[in-house]
Amino acid sequence: MKRNALFPAFVLSSFLGAAVLIVSCACAQAAPSAREVLESEVTAILDIIRKPAYANPATRGPLRADLEREVRKGFDFDEFSSRTAGPRWQQFTAEQKRQFSNAFADLLINTYAGKISGYNGEKVAYTGERTSAKGDRAEVLTVVTLKDGKKVPVAYRLLPKDGTWKVYDVLIENISLVKNYRTQFQDILKNASPEDLIARIRAKADETAKK
């Protein structure tokens, strides 16, 4: 008798449970993992660089703009900037933040775009992914095999933003790009104003663009 009374409750709860399970599965499918996001970004970037028109400096112009758009889609330069500027970032005005972020993005894109087009035989292998328990940080591990067969470990750190994953640091040979720039910028900011720092980054970015 008592068992019969409980039976509808049991059925209801199992239905609810199944519904929750289905919903959570659907959510998991809707949000791609950090690794999937990164893999598609990197593939898109490499596809542009591998185009024959990109190899020729005369026809590179429009592709270069595509490349920059693609890089900015996957890499969050505001995150790069605030992390490299450190605690002083709070004292930057909105205009200075914008200038800093743009100059730093130009510097990184100019440097590494030039670099990658140099290694046109490289292969990227995705070797692993680890996430924080809260799920708000992820690190995707890759190994880049250069033309000469040398293997370089490259790790990307990502955070969820605007409904997708954005790269906020790159570690080459386990050495953090952000940490390296951070030390440089801290040292410069010890004796110089934010404007001086921005001017120096801008000068360097323009210098690498000319090469």
């Binding site: 940490k179 390296n180 440089q184």
Partner: peptide, 24 residues
């Protein structure tokens, strides 16, 4: 050459990269 081209203060960049590289 790459490191020095990519950095705003090559001296500091080299110092940090060298020590981290050796620690690794």
């Amino acid at each position: 050459e790459d490191l020095s081209a990519a950095s705003v203060d090559p001296y500091i960049a080299m110092r940090e990269a060298y020590i981290n590289y050796r620690n690794e």
